[in-house]
């Protein structure tokens, strides 16, 4: 169900190298994400998946290469970094909601502070997205009063309130109890159907099959394979991808 209407790149990474001290975490990564494209990033633990997506919104700095987001070439200046982060939402494995704020306040903070939206407009937008992730009735609760699945949906709504052009997901369902995984995946599938550009680190292969335009496989800081889900799951070319898929499928 590829909806990538235009082939224009929204995110481009070229020749990206990243070191943590002596440790070479990303090795010459090239990745292009077109507008509206959904990418699922997978690979063994420690292969650099989190590092890769965290470089896109500059939560990590890179030592070599170039990252361009929506026409903005990332550098270390606060102005450029903020401009990129305004257009890129992120959802974390551990939700990271602000515990001292209500659900609604979590969702209105950034639009008010960053986009200078009026409180009334910010609330209206927040309610719209909270409805969309089907959690509108909980707007005045605190995060700790919600289940994990509800918290993660709030985190998705909070990111959407900034009206981003792309969304990054770092294992959004792996901290959840099994019975809550589906509600979060369904929310993400809904988002994908509306044409959001998405880069998702996840091991939910059913999700990958259903929404991904491309599955990207990483190991040891390198992208070893990138293919459409059908091709990738039926006939992975790289031996490490084959081993990895075998392990994943054995677990599920």
């Amino acid at each position: 169900m590829s909806q990538a209407s235009s082939s224009e790149a929204l995110i481009t990474m070229s020749g990206v190298d990243k070191w943590y001290g002596d440790f070479h975490a990303l090795k010459g990564v090239d990745l292009e994400v077109r507008r509206g494209e959904k990418i699922v990033l997978c690979g063994p633990s420690g292969s650099g998946k989190s590092t890769l997506i965290r470089c896109i919104n500059h939560l990590e700095t890179i030592q070599k290469g170039r990252i361009v987001v929506d026409g903005i070439a990332l550098d270390d200046s606060a102005r450029v970094v903020d401009a990129v982060r305004r257009e890129v939402g992120m959802v974390f494995q551990s939700f990271n909601l602000f515990p001292h704020m209500t659900v609604l306040e979590n969702c209105t903070l950034a639009p008010m502070r960053v986009r200078k939206v009026s409180p009334a407009d910010a609330k209206a937008t927040a309610r719209k997205y909270l409805e969309k992730v089907r959690i509108g009735e909980q707007a005045n609760k605190y995060p700790a009063q919600l289940s994990g699945g509800q918290q993660q949906r709030v985190a998705i709504a909070r990111a959407l309130c900034m009206e981003p052009k792309a969304m990054l997901f770092d294992e959004p369902t792996s901290a959840l109890d099994p019975e809550m995984v589906k509600e979060v995946l369904d929310t993400m599938i809904g988002l994908a159907r509306e044409g959001m550009t998405m880069v998702c680190v996840t091991h939910e292969m059913g999700f990958a099959r259903q929404v991904a335009d491309r599955v990207v496989f990483m190991a040891d800081g390198e992208i070893l394979e990138a293919a459409e889900p059908e091709t990738f799951f039926k006939n992975p070319q790289n031996p490490r991808a084959r081993t990895f898929l075998g392990e994943i499928l054995a677990h599920h």
Binding site: N57, L59, A78, D82, R85, R86, V88, G89, M90, F92, N96, L97, F98, L109, A110, R113, V114, A155, R158, A159, M162
Partner: peptide
């Protein structure tokens, strides 16, 4: 917490 705030572009 700081990371989420950064990701939301908060200064």
């Amino acid at each position: 917490q700081t990371e989420a705030a950064r990701a939301l572009s908060l200064g």
